[in-house]
Design a protein around this nucleic acid. Sequence first.
DNA 1: TATTCATATGAATTATAATTCATTTGATAG
DNA 2: CTATCAAATGAATTATAATTCATATGAATA
Lengths: 106, 106
Amino acid sequence: MKKGLTEICYKFFNNLANPTRLATLEKLMEKPMSVTELAAALGQEQSMISHNLKPLLKCNFVFIEKQGKKSIYSANQETIGTLFKAVEVHAEKYCPTGGKCLKEAN
Amino acid sequence: MKKGLTEICYKFFNNLANPTRLATLEKLMEKPMSVTELAAALGQEQSMISHNLKPLLKCNFVFIEKQGKKSIYSANQETIGTLFKAVEVHAEKYCPTGGKCLKEAN
DNA sequence: TATTCATATGAATTATAATTCATTTGATAG
DNA sequence: CTATCAAATGAATTATAATTCATATGAATA
């Protein structure tokens, strides 16, 4: 691991460590969507989706394409796909309780 | 991505979204160490290292082996290696400023 | 079995991030 | 050019997490 990558990693994982952003990414992995569509699909306020898309966009976890007054967002399939896969692999091998541990207090 | 993995992902990334824990993992990727050694290597208080090792251990990002009064921690090379590599690959392709964006305000 | 070393824990404080609500900007259509 | 729809922004509030400090546990040794 190169020097300084810890800092990048922090920003990187911090960006992903949010339920709204993860749900947004999960939706966008299915297909590109507008902000309004995302808000409807996730049952969240439009402003909240916008706020959360911003950091995802900044780190290129999602891409934007403006279509008239709409902004169509799409997921970075390469990066997000790799990460979700990595979590899946880890969980399968190292979370024998199937996420039961998540319910407990820290 | 399986149903319910969003929740697991949240816990997963949340666990990694911390500078102390990332620095700890980076150190442990080099070689197994005791809590005291880690504290010295990172210039942090022992209690802080212990506090931060706890969630890493819980998700099996690190492993523990007790040697007398010492606790020797080691990294889960498989998972952490994969993740760090993924960040590296992403950063190389999608962070053209070389992390310069990290300095700016959100 | 008292003492020391290593680690873990609890609880309070401090710092950081998420969410909401009001408002603004930008684009298109009437 | 003004009304409407879509998205973005700002600022205040609320929620979460990190850090510190004091203390407790547990193992080894004199």
